Computed example of a mutant assay.
Amino acid sequence: MRTVEEQLQQHGMKVFICDSADDPEKEKEYLDLLVSTQVDGIIIFPVGNDFKVYNYLIDHSIPMVFVDRLVDGVTSDSVLLDNHAAIFLAVSMLAEKGHENIAFLTLPIDIPITPRLERIEGFKKAMASHKLEVREDDIHSLPRNQIQEKLARILDAENPPTAIVAGNDLVLREILSYLKKQKISIPGEVAIVSIDDVAYTEFYEPSITTIGQPIQQMGIKTAELLLNRITNSDQAPYITYRFAPELIVRSSC
């Protein structure tokens, strides 16, 4: 958001930030407000999967760019991480270190949020490519407040995972909190890799191996796309830009 704001301010544009908190109703209220305010364009981290909400913006000729997520039935410029490549990097590193029982934890997919769905699919493909079995209890999609309870069960199972991939930084926080409380050593008892390279992962003890996103480049491209749509509404075609992830090796595996 900071990068987008800096880029747009250079072109004399002011940025309003609305936080939907992953609530489709709240998102719709904000979009209605922005339309009524006659903003020049909207950058959206889409929450819902109701294409009518976003096509409403198209019908009102308001340029928009999707970030991090896609919505079926909506044609828009989009900026995302290559989620399949990200999870492949994580699984490959763990497989090369000899891990066979690898668990993947992510947030709920009852709302079809693109990174979560793509990372689950990518996890299955990455495990298969390394000829590793994906067990029924290897993939977990659940609310943040249930993650620690789930960890207690899977790590106490007869054949527990020796490595865990966190679907994002919010999941990682819950994993680290649980392991610390239970005095489970990293990577001695369980190795950890997380998608999203947030600041604390470098300074946590042990430091956490992560899959980083080129946040600044993604922000610059997002602002560029929106500016182009604002100044040249007839341009085509719409494009989905996928950015390459980066494996940042630290001490957790």
Score class of each variant (00 low, 15 high):
Phe88Asp: 14
Leu89His: 08
Leu89Glu: 09
Ala90Cys: 09
Ala90Glu: 10
Val91Asp: 03
Ser92Leu: 09
Ser92Ala: 15
Ser92His: 11
Met93Thr: 10
Ala95Phe: 04
Glu96Asn: 14
Gly98Thr: 01
His99Pro: 04
Glu100Tyr: 03
Asn101Val: 03
Asn101Thr: 04
Ala103Val: 08
Ala103Tyr: 03
Phe104Cys: 04
Leu105Val: 03
Thr106Glu: 02
Thr106Gln: 03
Ile109Thr: 15
Ile109Ser: 13
Asp110Ser: 14
Asp110Arg: 08
Ile111Arg: 09
Pro112Phe: 15
Pro112Tyr: 15
Pro112Lys: 14
Ile113Asp: 00
Ile113Gln: 05
Thr114Trp: 11
Thr114Gly: 09
Thr114Glu: 12
Pro115Asn: 11
Pro115Glu: 10
Arg116Asp: 02
Arg116Leu: 11
Leu117Trp: 00
Leu117Ser: 01
Glu118Gly: 00
Glu118Ala: 13
Glu118Leu: 12
Arg119Val: 02
Ile120His: 00
Ile120Cys: 12
Glu121Asp: 15
Glu121His: 11
Phe123Thr: 02
Lys124Phe: 03
Lys124Pro: 00
Lys124Ser: 07
Lys125Tyr: 00
Met127Tyr: 05
Met127Glu: 00
Met127Asn: 05
Ala128Gln: 10
Ala128Arg: 06
Ala128His: 07
Ser129Asn: 15
Ser129Trp: 12
Ser129Lys: 15
Lys131Glu: 12
Leu132Ser: 07
Leu132Met: 14
Glu133Ala: 07
Val134Tyr: 13
Arg135Lys: 14
Arg135Met: 06
Arg135Cys: 03
Glu136His: 10
Glu136Gln: 11
Glu136Arg: 06
Asp137Gly: 04
Asp137Asn: 15
Asp138Asn: 05
Ile139Asp: 07
His140Leu: 11
Ser141Leu: 08
Ser141Asp: 13
Ser141Thr: 14
Pro143Gly: 08
Asn145Thr: 10
Gln146Glu: 15
Gln146Cys: 13
Gln148Asp: 09
Lys150Gly: 00
Ala152Gly: 11
Arg153Pro: 00
Arg153Met: 06
Ile154Gln: 08
Ile154Asp: 08
Leu155Cys: 09
Asp156Thr: 04
Asp156Phe: 00
Asn159Leu: 10
Pro160Ala: 14
Pro160Cys: 13
Pro160Asn: 14
Pro161Met: 06
Pro161Trp: 02
Thr162Met: 05
Thr162Gln: 08
Ile164Pro: 08
Ile164Asp: 02
Val165Gly: 03
Val165His: 02
Val165Trp: 01
Val165Leu: 11
Ala166Trp: 01
Ala166Cys: 15
Ala166Val: 12
Ala166Met: 13
Gly167Phe: 09
Leu170Gly: 02
Val171Phe: 09
Val171Ser: 04
Leu172Cys: 13
Arg173Phe: 12
Glu174Lys: 15
Leu176His: 08
Leu176Gly: 07
Leu176Cys: 09
Ser177Leu: 13
Ser177Asn: 14
Tyr178Gln: 06
Tyr178Gly: 05
Tyr178Ala: 06
Leu179Pro: 02
Leu179Cys: 07
Leu179Met: 09
Leu179Ala: 07
Lys180Arg: 12
Lys183Phe: 00
Lys183Asp: 11
Lys183Gln: 14
Ser185Arg: 15
Ile186His: 03
Ile186Val: 15
Ile186Leu: 09
Ile186Trp: 01
Pro187His: 01
Pro187Glu: 12
Pro187Ile: 07
Gly188Met: 02
Gly188Ile: 01
Glu189His: 06
Glu189Asn: 10
Glu189Pro: 00
